[in-house]
Design a protein around this nucleic acid. Structure first.
Length: 425
RNA sequence: GGAGGGAUCGCAUAGUGGUCUAGUGCGGCCGCCUGCUAAGCGGUUACCUCGGGAAACCGGGGUCAUGGGUUCGAAUCCCAUUCCCUCCGCCA
């Protein structure tokens, strides 16, 4: 969420930034509610000051007649407070609700654009090309090899679910372990094991609610919300804390399953494992000082790239434009890998600097030094990486004419020495 | 699932309706003293918000897990919720 003080003092800047996002935000209503709130607040607070001062005199008074007279006189003040308070609370609730609907402001370096066609290719490694023979898509390869079973996935949980079997299941596990090892050993992240369900307030703090309620699975009975990404629990892990400046930056990596209803994407990417209701992801997350977040963002993109480089996949980094930016982000880079079978770039990671937007919602602050005023940290998140599209890209890029699939050297130790996936007879 | 106990200023505790502007100890910070120590002495010690001010700061309001209620007035009384602990039951 944005600071109300900032909106109040820089309404034009905010208006312009939100226009760049192609977002309708209730800015005028926020400004109106804010001034109304402050007017009411001052009235209520001066009444309370009166009440407090008189209450103190009553406490000190001994004579009971005098006392009774003072109490009677104060009832009028109390009544007026009782009258105004509900109105103040109502205005305040409305203001908070509107503020929670306003997205983050784009970083000035974010390119201007209306939609994904405005995104900018930052760099590319390898050339997107075809194989020497007709390439099969991963869903055909996976089924033929007996490592991806869509039919039984649907039997268990419906469409957009699948079962991994044998080397396929092992590949999933190998990738998770390889990524966690890479980020902990080489990039300095601390590994966390997290709950895959969270309370509603976590969804608000990380910016999933109220905008993306449609995309979330929610258990009504216990009010559990299934995480659509580990970003949610990670954002909340230091909620309401004041961190020590010397402890920053904090770098976390966590593997979790992710659950998404994909209501908005009905009919899109229905074949294969590109878009499922449940998928695995290794998530990178940082809490930094404000002045360090840009550098951290660049590093994190590099950390995600290291994964696909290890796997030998042709990839590119794309900077997201203002119109395509996510709700929480000020600046985002996507990492995409090439699929020779479908002629598409698969998005396997999205790395964002959320500046103080989530920190304000989750109330995560830090002190530069003892005695200093707390300031909001900056938060950054990035996939490092999402699994299914990496699996798809591996199968499609390393397939051989006979339908078997080679494994890149970096994965072989994690596959128990297996270097080639062949049909399981 | 059942029974009970608890949540107070970094930590530990005191506080059962008005002098609580929440006390004390420890820790932290600042200073002083001492040519002996992890010694002694004094001071200080949170956060949010509104208003004023260029600022240092000043004034108001709020926060004793959270949200309601009773009352002129709530850390204190009542209700609900959350979390923690103990015991019983069940169980990977």
């Amino acid at each position: 969420m944005l600071s109300i003080q900032f909106i109040r003092e820089h309404a034009d800047v905010v208006r312009q930034a939100l226009a760049a996002r192609r977002t309708e935000a209730p800015l005028d209503e926020v400004l109106r509610l804010d001034s109304e709130r402050r007017r009411l607040l001052q009235e209520v607070e001066s009444l309370r000051a009166e009440q407090n001062a008189a209450g103190k005199r009553i406490g000190a008074a001994k004579d009971s007649d005098e006392r009774k007279r003072m109490i009677a006189a104060l009832k009028d003040v109390s009544a007026r407070i009782d009258d105004l308070e509900p109105a103040l609370k109502d205005i305040d609730d409305q203001l908070q609700a509107r503020l929670m609907e306003i997205p983050n402001l784009p970083d000035p370096a974010t390119p201007e654009g209306a939609d994904e066609t405005g995104n900018a290719i930052v760099r590319q490694s390898g050339e997107p090309g075809a194989l020497d023979f007709p390439a099969k898509p991963h869903w055909e390869l996976g089924e033929a090899l007996g490592i991806i079973d869509f039919e039984r996935g649907a039997r268990l949980a419906g469409s957009r679910f699948y079962v991994l079997r044998g080397a396929g299941a092992r590949l999933e596990r190998a990738l998770i372990t390889m990524m966690l090892d890479l980020h902990t050993a080489r990039h300095g992240y601390t590994e966390l094991y997290l709950p895959a369900v969270v309370k509603e307030e976590c969804m608000w703090a990380s910016g999933q609610l109220p905008k993306f309620a449609d995309n979330l699975y929610h258990d009504v009975e216990d009010d559990f919300w299934l995480v659509p990404t580990a970003e949610v629990p990670l954002t909340n892990i230091h909620r309401d804390e004041i961190l020590e400046g010397v402890a920053l930056p904090l770098s976390y990596v966590a593997y979790t399953p992710c659950f998404r209803r994909e209501k908005m994407s009905a009919g899109r990417d229905v074949r294969g494992i590109k878009r499922g209701h449940q998928f695995d992801k290794v998530e990178l997350y940082k809490f930094t000082r404000p002045e360090e977040s840009e550098e951290a963002l660049q590093q994190m993109v590099g950390h995600a790239e290291a994964v696909v480089r290890e796997l030998g996949l042709t990839h590119r980094v794309v900077q997201i434009c203002t119109g395509d930016l996510g709700f929480n982000a000020a600046k985002t880079y996507d990492l995409e890998v090439w699929s020779p079978a479908t002629g598409e770039w698969y998005e396997v990671s999205s790395v964002s600097n959320c500046t103080d937007f989530q920190a304000r919602r989750a109330n995560v602050r830090f002190r530069r030094e003892t005695g200093a005023r707390p300031e909001f940290v900056h938060t950054l998140n990035g996939s490092g990486t999402a699994l299914p599209r990496v699996v798809a890209a591996l199968l499609e890029n390393y397939q051989r004419p006979d339908g078997s699939v080679e494994l890149p050297p970096a994965l072989i130790p994690y596959m128990g020495g297996l270097a080639l996936i062949e049909p399981d007879v």
